[in-house]
Design a protein around this nucleic acid. Sequence first.
DNA 1: TATTTGCAAACGAACAATCGTACGTAACAT
DNA 2: ATGTTACGTACGATTGTTCGTTTGCAAATA
Lengths: 190, 190
Amino acid sequence: MNDLQKKSKKHYIIETAAELFTEKGFKASSIRELAQRVGLEPSSIYSHIHSKEELLITICTNCASRFTEGMQVIMSTPKSSLEKIEMLIGLHVETAFDDPAAVAVFSEEWRHLPEPYLTIFKDAKKQYEQNFRLIIKQGMDEASIREMDTNVVFNTIINAVKWPYFSGKKYDKKKILETIIQMLMHGLKK
Amino acid sequence: MNDLQKKSKKHYIIETAAELFTEKGFKASSIRELAQRVGLEPSSIYSHIHSKEELLITICTNCASRFTEGMQVIMSTPKSSLEKIEMLIGLHVETAFDDPAAVAVFSEEWRHLPEPYLTIFKDAKKQYEQNFRLIIKQGMDEASIREMDTNVVFNTIINAVKWPYFSGKKYDKKKILETIIQMLMHGLKK
DNA sequence: TATTTGCAAACGAACAATCGTACGTAACAT
DNA sequence: ATGTTACGTACGATTGTTCGTTTGCAAATA
């Protein structure tokens, strides 16, 4: 088995783990069931990974990087706050569509991360949220965004944008993105 | 110990369980830790409950009833679809504020319900969602709601309204409710 | 080409820890 | 005195993981 195949087998285990963790949650997912899904005996899994927690760390860290990097790009782009928020919504929707299982685990299971990864994760999350709120605040200062409680606006957006990962990808990404943006920008009322 | 106190002790155990399940998740919460939090030995818990799963069933069922009943009231009220949606948003925000731990468990841990409760829960959930979507659809037919994909609108609202339970109750319920409604009705754009 | 070497991958078995929970008994309240 | 509440102990099941060994395949040697 050459390097490429070796790499892709570990990757396959991680992918399968993400799906399993999504279905049952991290704590309710056993190495034995993971092994069964990838077609190995439980002990053989450990020829590829060091621990069950390593799987969670890998999944969460990869996903976190994606969001953090996306935020950096968006922050340093010379656009209006409103356009930046649209880009952020796009970042969330696209990430959720590309790898729904990973985003689901990242969103729901991060609390099971072992230290020091848990602390690192929480710090990154806090940083991300602060950046997000800053953009919202700037939009209000520019008077392009209605004056509302920043925190409520932030939480509403971040959760409104959170669902595509558990609704199956039976929908069209572009259409969903457009609708969510329309919804959040102009609201329900005609 | 009289009937009232007896009842309130079981209730206290359930409340504590809801908090514990919220913090760690159902699977990662042990009876031993629950016992410690309520000031009992592990085995003593079983003088009040039949099983760990019973706690989850109780929490989820109570919460589900509250939403189902709220939906019934709102559906049979002679108001516009837009007003009904505002009432639904109110139902979610108020429930989340009144008992954040229970709502958190209800929202995140229901998949660990044992059968037949799991099936019953999923059916009730589906029914609730269908009713919600119907109200949205009616609003579009009445032309008071912008024509958009019903499912996207539904998911956006239901998740936008889901967060107050994990943000601590450090905020003013009324103010949050008003802001969320403003946000969802009129959007970000000024 | 034929044979040996070496290493990663897979395995079966078992261990220690933790889990939910049952059981028999003691303390307590009415 | 009777029934409820609390307890200590322990059992059986499941968990993540380790260990020593075997298998399979590729590179090196003959």
